[in-house]
Nucleic acid binder design. Structure first.
Length: 881
RNA sequence: GCGAAAGUGGCGGAACUGGUAGACGCGCUGGAUUUAGGUUCCAGUGGGCAACACCCGUGAGGGUUCGAGUCCCUCCUUUCGCACCA
């Protein structure tokens, strides 16, 4: 055995052994309990980042652990290969997105293999392969037949200079990222998937996902946002009816709003409509200053965070609707915080009982009318001078015949009265909106439709699928290259054979990632989306990925799965049985603002901290060797834009894959964010070297003293029994930490403790070495899911002919854990005052007497009679005086 | 702005069901080895204090309890998401 730990050599040998044995290949017929462990596939950005290393190490630990527990495992890998970065790279370097993407995949695959992940590469998929995205197109057409996929207009960010649609990411402070032009909102036709049809089920089935983090389920539930409320129709007043060309009193001459607080209907003092609302546009056509305001509202991005934090602005229209009960006129306002895309694009304004309405009314001088009072008297400030809205439930006041009801009863009564007048009814509304999947972009899955001047919109026949994306185009930032490529869009109509135009929009990449998990079961099937093999493997038993995907990706995937089920393709309703959301990998952020242009970010590797007189200065060294002082901006997610990433490649080259994996697993529990630390990496490497040295010492001793005999449990000396106890305790803890708690950091800490104990054990007797042999084996096995290469090598050195990953995970010897003496902690009035030793089977009276006899306890009891003595079995005694 | 989570030594974290706060690692201090630096090994390391006694201590403030890092209320800070980044 080598005396020194040489990771490069150890890892090369282990990987060669695994490759030769085909250890990572998954088979359907292997029998046993299947375990499908899936990590979210990467976007092939060029190189792995630390988030990937963390994600895939977690998956690999769980996979290897499950395999050693006798489960038949599948751990596949693929590529989320369509998307915007490939187009950006193309613009920057003039390389076609296809080539850039495939080169990246080849490089990153090598990196993953070097990290020793037990991935079944025979099932590799890339979403940019026609053999994959064909099935996106196929299922899209099935959805279209059922009306789940449909067409309507949607609002996008529009760059008026480049004449192109911008992603939210490409809008910086309301301006286009390349042109700097003020971004506008624009309505364009798009295809939508009717996810709201599944809203109820998506919400309900969250209850079946017991192995998902509570916070993800809560976030999804809030995102879906089921609310019970009332549709209220406000009839047009004469001026509005005239403007809109509808006879007053006509059923269509109403403004519809949705409210969850119909009990506050008598508090309505205005209604607010979106700038794009038909009434706003009609009024604006006759009022230039109003039109200018509408145009102002149209500027800016469509992002909700922007809209919500924007200063609330509004303009009165001079138009009115009438209150459905009092008949009073209520003025219509155009407001920038009302969005056309939500509900009816109009809301009723109740300043007394809604925070936002209150702010708007106060600012605009609109009347405030209290119609709900607190029942507890907790909030009596419901008359002028107004301080705040009262948004809680209570009892109605000032509400004509509906006064004096509690809020819930008032909602019911008002809804019933509205229904009787045909001016409203109860309705369940979801916050969730339908999923717009059209992208005016090149590097994505083509939407398989054809526009024929005669036949209209026609589906591409199944026999002509896939509609293949041409791979040679290089985008230039102005519009969609597909729309400028006649060889792609010129086609003939499948119905009339006349000249027609192919749809040039592509699909949202969330479509690709919504079902890739299923395709791993049968990546080679050209005749069906999924086949019988899917029945064996699916659904996924364990899914692992970043917390940032807690809502969108996971919700879309759940939806897509339910659609596949309804088409009879799969027989389960939820794609991921258990979910582990890993935290982000963080590093320090340093920046400097040049005289002009954007902030420059500096990699923490190039920044030194100088401290003098308690003041820290941060000095960055540039490529050319020059230095400058930079600003420190705290910790943030590793990202290209903040230039604070650490390349896993350098880490693997310097310390080996095992050290990289160990550091990732040891530094933080998987669900928490993880702070990068160079020193921590060195510590992990140091530990592996100590482990190697310890095993080497033991093996060397055996070489001179002979192979240790079998353990004779009955013949152990007390120190030998102590070490065995520590060994079995460690095994029990690690098994529980990996298998149940998934706290790999504490599992590793337990083995570190064992190694510390081991170092103090110096007993060369045959039984001593037998105990030591077991200790070395348990330490090796316990660490093997985290650091498989070094464990593979040590297992051989410990005298085993077989491959460690084919071994069974050992059972804990419970008899070794038994204790005859216990140490109990004694408190007086809850404060720690001493410790006592008692027999493990001591009765309460003995414990009580021993505790009270403890000198320091007596000092604090000071002759007083204990009022109470609380005994927590095997742990603690608390004397209350 | 809205939804969610997290705040514990100089740092990353541990304390799993309300029961010894700080396991394990990093860093630091001292010692041994080394020509030196590095490495390795040993010891120490929350603050106060002469002290192993004792007092204080888990973002801030309040509460429940024999006992609170853990439960409840208010507040502060940070991170994630907000529908076209993936």
């Amino acid at each position: 055995m080598e005396e020194r730990y040489e990771p490069a050599q150890v890892e090369r040998a282990a990987q060669a052994d695994w490759a030769a044995a085909g250890s990572f290949r998954a088979r359907e017929d292997a029998g046993g309990d299947k375990f499908y462990c899936l990590s979210m596939f990467p976007y092939p950005s060029g190189r792995l980042h630390m988030g990937h290393v963390r994600n895939y190490t977690i998956g690999d630990v769980l996979t290897r652990f499950a395999r050693m527990q006798g489960r038949n495992v599948l751990q596949p890998m693929g590529w989320d290969a369509f998307g915007l970065p490939a187009e950006n790279a193309a613009m920057a370097n003039g390389v076609a997105p296809a080539k850039w993407t495939r080169d990246n995949i080849a490089y990153m695959k090598k990196q993953l293999q070097a990290l020793g992940f037990a991935l079944d590469w025979e099932r590799e998929i890339a979403t940019c392969d026609p053999s994959y995205y064909k099935w996106n197109q196929w299922l899209f057409l099935r959805m279209r037949e059922k009306g789940i996929a449909y067409k309507r207009t949607g609002v996008v960010n529009w760059d008026p200079v480049d004449q192109t649609v911008l992603a939210n990411e490409q809008v910086i402070d309301g301006r286009g990222w390349r042109t700097g032009a003020l971004v506008e909102k624009r309505e364009i036709p798009m295809y939508y998937l009717n996810i709201t049809r599944y809203a109820d089920e998506l919400l309900r089935d969250l209850d079946t996902l017991g192995d998902w983090p509570e916070r993800v389920r809560v976030m999804q539930a809030n995102w879906i946002g089921r609310s019970e409320g009332v549709d209220v129709a406000f009839p047009f007043a004469a001026n509005t009816a005239a403007l809109m060309g509808k006879p007053a009193g006509d059923a269509s001459a109403v403004m519809k709003v949705f409210t969850t607080r119909a009990d506050t209907l008598f508090g309505v003092t205005f209604v607010a409509i979106a700038a794009e609302h038909p009434i706003a546009l009609a009024a604006g056509a006759k009022d230039p200053s109003l039109m200018a305001f509408i145009d102002e509202c149209r500027r800016g991005s469509v992002m909700e965070a922007d809209v919500a934090t924007m200063e609330k602005k509004g303009r009165r229209t001079g138009l009115h609707v009438t209150h459905p009960f009092t008949g009073e006129p209520v003025e219509i306002w155009v407001a920038n915080y009302v969005l056309m895309g939500y509900g009816e694009g109009a809301v009723m304004g109740v300043p007394a009982h809604d925070e936002r309405d209150f702010a708007f009314a106060t600012q605009q001088g609109i009347a405030i009318r209290t119609v709900v009072k607190s029942t507890t008297g907790a909030y009596e400030n419901v008359v002028a001078p107004w301080i705040d809205a009262y948004g809680e439930h209570g009892v109605t006041v000032n509400s004509a015949e509906f006064s004096g009801l509690d809020s819930k009863a008032a909602v019911d009564a008002i809804a019933a009265a509205l229904a009787a007048k045909d001016l409203g009814q109860k309705r369940v509304q979801f916050r969730l909106r339908d999923w717009g999947i059209s992208r005016q972009r090149y590097w994505g899955c083509p939407i398989p439709l054809i526009h024929c001047p005669k036949c209209g919109e026609v589906a591409v026949p199944d026999s002509q699928l896939p509609v293949v994306l041409p791979e040679h185009l290089v985008p230039d930032g102005s519009g969609n290259p597909l729309a400028k490529t006649p060889s792609f869009f010129e086609c003939s109509c499948p119905q009339c054979d006349g000249p027609a135009r192919r749809e040039t929009d592509t699909m949202d990449t969330f479509v690709d990632s919504s079902w890739y998990y299923a395709r791993y079961a049968c990546p080679d099937n050209d005749a069906a989306m999924v086949d019988a093999r899917a029945k064996y493997w699916l659904p996924v038993d364990q899914y692992i990925g970043g917390i940032e995907h807690a809502i969108l990706h996971l919700l879309y995937s759940r939806f897509w799965t339910k659609v596949m089920r309804d088409f009879g393709l799969v027989d389960y309703s939820e794609p991921f049985r258990s979910l582990l959301t890993q935290g982000m990998v963080l590093n320090h952020i340093y920046w400097q603002q040049p005289a002009e242009g954007r902030r420059l970010y500096f990699n923490p590797n190039d920044v030194d901290v100088e401290e003098s007189g308690g003041v820290k200065r941060y000095i960055a060294t540039r490529d050319d060797g020059s230095q400058l002082e930079v600003q420190y901006d705290g910790l943030g997610t590793m990202s290209k834009s903040k230039n604070n990433g650490v390349d896993p490649q350098s880490l693997v080259e310097k310390y080996g894959a095992d050290t990289a994996r160990l550091f990732m697993m040891f530094t933080a529990p998987p669900e928490q964010s993880l702070e990068w630390s160079d020193e921590g990496v060195q510590g992990s490497f140091r530990f592996l070297r100590r482990l190697w040295t310890a095993v080497h010492g033991h093996v060397a001793m055996n070489a001179t003293a002979g192979v240790p005999p079998a353990l004779d449990r009955a013949a152990l000396t007390p120190p030998q029994r102590e070490l065995r106890r520590a060994v079995q305790q460690t095994l029990a803890k690690v098994t529980d930490d990996i298998g149940r708690r998934r706290t790999f950091n504490t599992a590793i800490a337990a083995v570190m403790e064992l190694l510390n104990t081991l170092a103090r054990f110096d007993d060369r007797s045959p039984q001593g070495r037998a105990v030591l042999q077991e200790a070395c084996e348990v330490a090796t096995v316990c660490l093997s899911p985290m650091v498989p290469h070094v464990a593979h090598a040590l297992w051989r050195e410990l005298g085993h002919a077989g491959t460690l990953m084919d071994e069974r995970w050992p059972q804990v010897d419970a008899s070794a854990l038994e204790l005859t003496q216990l140490t109990l902690v004694v408190q007086v009035n809850g404060k720690l005052r001493g410790q006592i030793e008692v027999a493990a089977d001591a009765g309460e009276e003995t414990i009580r007497a021993t505790a009270l006899a403890e000198p320091n306890v007596q000092k604090f009891v000071a002759g007083a009679t204990p009022r109470k003595v609380i005994i927590v079995p095997r742990k603690l005694v608390n004397v209350v005086v």
